[in-house]
Design a protein around this nucleic acid. Structure first.
Lengths: 232, 232
DNA sequence: CGTAACCTTGATTAAGATCAATTCTCGTGG
DNA sequence: CCACGAGAATTGATCTTAATCAAGGTTACG
């Protein structure tokens, strides 16, 4: 494997071969197994990450033990990049930690680490990266906003919302088929509910002939009914 | 009023008098009354805003009519800046709207508008602003993350969390006094609940001698008890 | 083919939304 | 300066949603 892995990373699109090679030589690549932790929220911050292969979930554990998934990260996207700019001065100090936990969701999840000190240099020299970074953060903000909006509705609506969102991104969208890249447990934690409630909710949607579920494959039968379920 | 108003804006800190004057000459300043809308989520995006005086709430209305406050913006902070970088190409097109609604919360709320086309120029020329912007967005991301975290706990915990957060920012923190800059209704919408539930929750805290409430003034009597209520 | 992880189902309970009045507060005009 | 009225805040009774508790059932994989 070589620097070509970086070619598809949104943050670095527009850079030439040489630049990519240089970045690659300064990064660390590591492969994780399913369920393996990439970082804990108790670890000092050393830099941000890029998903090359596989999927990652970013989550917090509340004091009562429940898990809350903030987002899933898919290939070619970055995570844990926001703290970079949080407080330039505080960084590198021992009391600066990752803001959440990150776990690989499948075997052979390939993750690239970009250390913050090196990345600061890059930013100084490269305005394009700076603007790309702005664009990336802004997309995350937008996503979090709609997550907040959705989470304060009832579970069926949240689920419908999620399914429609996934359908948009699905490669088989014309067929109305979604392939969940995550477990039902993780989906429940993302929707801010628990496994049992999600299960019942999926069941009800199936009874109403809105969807059909087979393992991780979900077929959207009534898209308009789903849209209606997502609204009022 | 002149460009000195921009001096305290985090985004522009570090710029010299001349630069500030130039920015000021390219901006629009407008004063709003309490309850007046600054923008709706149905309006085309023309730029971002800075609060000079007063307070602003950013919110959405869900289809069932409930209001969800995403955040409150206080003096010297920016809002609606994330869409700037969302999709460089799409901007200026007619189908690019503000992502939420913004309302002034008090009379004489003074708001500065920075148009996006002008700001792009600024960004091109000024790396400092670019980095400041990154830092600002990252702070918002962090805030939204903790908002999500808090919103998926029960209402008493969310309230306790909020109060502790406000206490940290309060000028009278040593006295344990918080001055709510917002109505109870807005607080409820921010906490993702309704007026009645918030009211009952405040009452319970008072019965337990954790706080005392007089209008918009809240006295934290038992900070440690409040911390305990915020956790498990 | 057996075990563990994953998912589903049912019964019960608790939290909070809804509905319906009241009471409180404060700004305005008489 | 007081009275009025509108908006804000509180309270109570009821009902809905989803969490919890406790078993089962399925699936995937060694």
């Amino acid at each position: 494997m070589d620097s070509s892995i970086l070619k598809n990373v949104n943050l670095f699109s527009g850079l030439n071969e040489e630049e990519l090679n240089k970045i690659y030589s300064h990064s660390n690549v590591k492969t994780y197994d399913k369920g393996e932790m990439i970082f804990f929220d108790t670890e000092p911050y050393i830099g941000f990450y890029i998903v090359a292969e596989g999927n990652v979930k970013i989550f917090k554990i509340s004091k009562d033990g429940r898990e809350h998934v903030l987002l899933f990260v898919h290939p070619f996207n970055t995570f844990a990049e926001a703290p970079l700019f949080d407080q330039f001065e505080k960084i590198r100090s021992e009391d600066f930690y990752y803001p959440a936990n990150a776990m690989a969701l499948e075997d052979k999840t390939k993750i690239i680490l970009i250390r913050s000190d090196y990345f600061y240099n890059l930013l100084e020299k490269n305005k394009t990266i700076c603007l790309k970074m702005l664009s990336g953060l802004s997309r995350k903000l937008k996503h979090l906003n709609s997550h907040i909006e959705s989470i304060s509705q009832d579970v069926p609506r949240r689920l419908a919302w999620f399914l429609l969102d996934e359908l948009k991104k699905s490669p088989q969208k014309e067929k109305g088929i979604i392939e969940l890249g995550i477990s039902k447990h993780d989906l429940a934690a993302y929707l801010g509910t628990i496994d049992e409630t999600l299960s019942r909710c999926l069941k009800k949607f199936q009874e109403n002939k809105i969807i059909s579920v087979k393992g991780k494959k979900i077929h959207i039968i009534g898209k308009s009914a789903l849209r209606q379920a997502a609204s009022v």
